[in-house]
Design a protein around this nucleic acid. Structure first.
Length: 188
DNA sequence: AGACTGATATTCT
DNA sequence: GAATATCAGTCTA
């Protein structure tokens, strides 16, 4: 459920609370195990320099998707949140649980661990494209179930950015084998 | 396991 | 023209 109260909080808080939530697109997806927070005061954020055609969703209502093209090739999914406009949480990795065969077909890969590990791979596995930019998270094809109970979450620095590298706004599920490769290496 | 490369949309200089 | 919230392939070890 995308209760506005859940998303109308600081991005770092929402990013931590999203770990363990179940995210499905047309019934295909899994449990969120890795996220990153971005807000308009953050030099690494797309919203740092104000609205543009690409990042418009970040300045719209909370509880919606912000989908953008990364390096001209991949799609990346964010969930718009925050008390003020311009915040979002990047979904970096899922533990696949639903629609495994469909994800394997879309990715052309059989190994579960490689289906949704990384923002670009995740979007390919769930069939997420720019068509879902601005789409409300409580309206099909999206389905989002957040957890009520507490869960062990580890914070750390974000990945693949050159600015704001010291802000510990990446969150991973403790002990999960389905997080990004670079993280798994650093954890070990 | 690590280093390098190519693909290439959007934004910034 | 250069950089980027990336990934898959290939080469070196």
């Amino acid at each position: 459920m995308s209760d506005p109260a859940f998303f109308r909080r600081d991005a770092a808080v929402v990013a931590r609370d999203l770990i363990g939530a179940r995210l499905l697109v047309d019934g295909v997806g899994g449990v969120i195990v890795e996220t990153e927070a971005y807000d308009p005061l953050d030099p690494a954020s797309h919203s740092a320099r104000g609205p543009s055609p690409r990042n418009a969703a970040m300045f719209g209502p909370v509880g919606r998707a912000y989908v953008y093209r990364s390096y001209g090739i991949h799609w990346c999914l964010n969930l718009v949140c925050g008390c003020e406009p311009g915040s979002a949480v990047l979904i970096r990795a899922l533990e696949p649980t639903d629609g495994l065969a469909e994800m394997q077909a879309r990715r052309g890969v059989a190994v579960l661990r490689d289906l949704c590990r990384g923002p670009g791979r995740l979007c390919q596995a769930l069939g997420i494209t720019g068509a879902l930019d601005h789409h409300p998270l409580d309206v099909p094809p999206f389905a989002l179930q957040t957890r009520g109970d507490a869960i062990a979450v580890l914070p750390g620095p974000r990945i693949g950015i050159t600015r704001g590298v010291d802000t510990p706004w990446r969150f991973v599920m403790a002990g999960s084998r389905f997080v990004s490769r670079t993280i798994a290496a650093r954890q070990a």
